[in-house]
């Protein structure tokens, strides 16, 4: 009976793992198939060819798209963290009137539907003259990365022991020195986690990227993949799409797996603690 129970349990576990991993696995084996092999359904790797990967880069612009994505996500995250570190110190550690309201507003902005600001942002982007440049995306991504980083860093900052800050106050540290000399060195794991989560958010963004770019050279990876098409409208180049998908997913998956404990902590800080 007991053996049966534990066998059933492991079967369930195996099922969960299978469901979670299979689509990614299938994308990988598809990406190694070309020609007619593509249209034979195989559960195991049968052929191995890197042609699709070569074609992704030959299609023009994909390397550029990756560069765009990396650049845009990195700049957005760095700017957000820069603004968020000082702001979250103020929100977590200083008692002032209107703090609760401000935090509530920040939380509300982070749950904003992006579409609600689309037309206003579109006008702004056109007006500043940054349409179809990376700056349009850096600007618009701030709308969700900034409230998110502020919120998560505030919850992290709240958990830092208060006596350390008080010791620094007695030692004569100003608020700026408390942040830079005492808290920042303690916060770097939190900064990495928050930065990583914000990076993933920016890396995956689609709506703004689709709307504020118009040429192949300025697109980000998700838009590029969304728009990959074959010679004719009716022929979807699945092999190339899967190769591109694997290319942009593998680094993220590796990052997530490396930082998995920290990511779980970051997600729950943003979610459950509230």
């Amino acid at each position: 009976m007991k053996a049966l129970k534990s066998a059933a349990f492991y079967l369930l576990v195996a099922f969960i793992v299978f469901i979670a991993v299979f689509p990614f696995y299938y994308a990988i084996i598809t990406s190694f198939k070309t020609g007619t092999a593509l249209f034979q359904i195989d559960y195991w790797p049968t052929t191995f060819s890197l042609d699709n990967y070569r074609d992704v880069f030959n299609q023009g612009g994909f390397f550029r798209n990756i560069l765009n994505s990396v650049l845009i996500a990195s700049v957005t995250v760095c700017l957000s963290l820069l603004l968020a570190v000082t702001a979250s110190y103020a929100l977590a550690r200083v008692r002032f009137r209107g703090r609760g309201l401000l935090l509530m507003t920040i939380l509300a902005v982070s749950m904003f539907p992006q579409i609600a600001v689309l037309s206003g942002l579109f006008e702004m982007v056109r007006f500043i003259g940054i349409y179809n440049t990376p700056w349009a995306l850096i600007l618009s991504y701030t709308i969700f990365t900034l409230p998110f980083t502020v919120w998560v860093l505030t919850t992290f900052m709240r958990d830092l022991p208060i006596e350390i800050e008080e010791a620094a106050i007695i030692d004569g540290a100003t608020p700026w020195q408390i942040i830079t000399k005492v808290f920042m060195p303690l916060m770097w794991p939190a900064l990495v986690t928050t930065g990583l989560l914000a990076f993933i958010g920016a890396w995956n963004e689609f709506l703004f990227a689709l709307t504020f770019t118009s040429s192949t050279e300025t697109r980000t990876v998700p838009v590029a993949i969304g728009m990959l098409s074959g010679a004719s409208q009716y022929e979807t180049p699945w092999g190339i799409i899967m190769a591109a998908s694997v290319l942009v997913t593998v680094p993220i998956v590796i990052l997530v797996l490396v930082f998995q404990r920290k990511i779980v902590a970051g997600l729950t800080a943003g979610g459950v603690k509230g």
């Binding site: 990614f24 993933i200 995956n204 998700p222 838009v223 993949i225 942009v248 997913t249 993220i252 997530v256």
Partner: peptide, 9 residues
């Protein structure tokens, strides 16, 4: 893994 994969992908 599913969570980490970009939605478009």
């Amino acid at each position: 893994i599913p969570w980490a994969i970009p939605t478009i992908v």
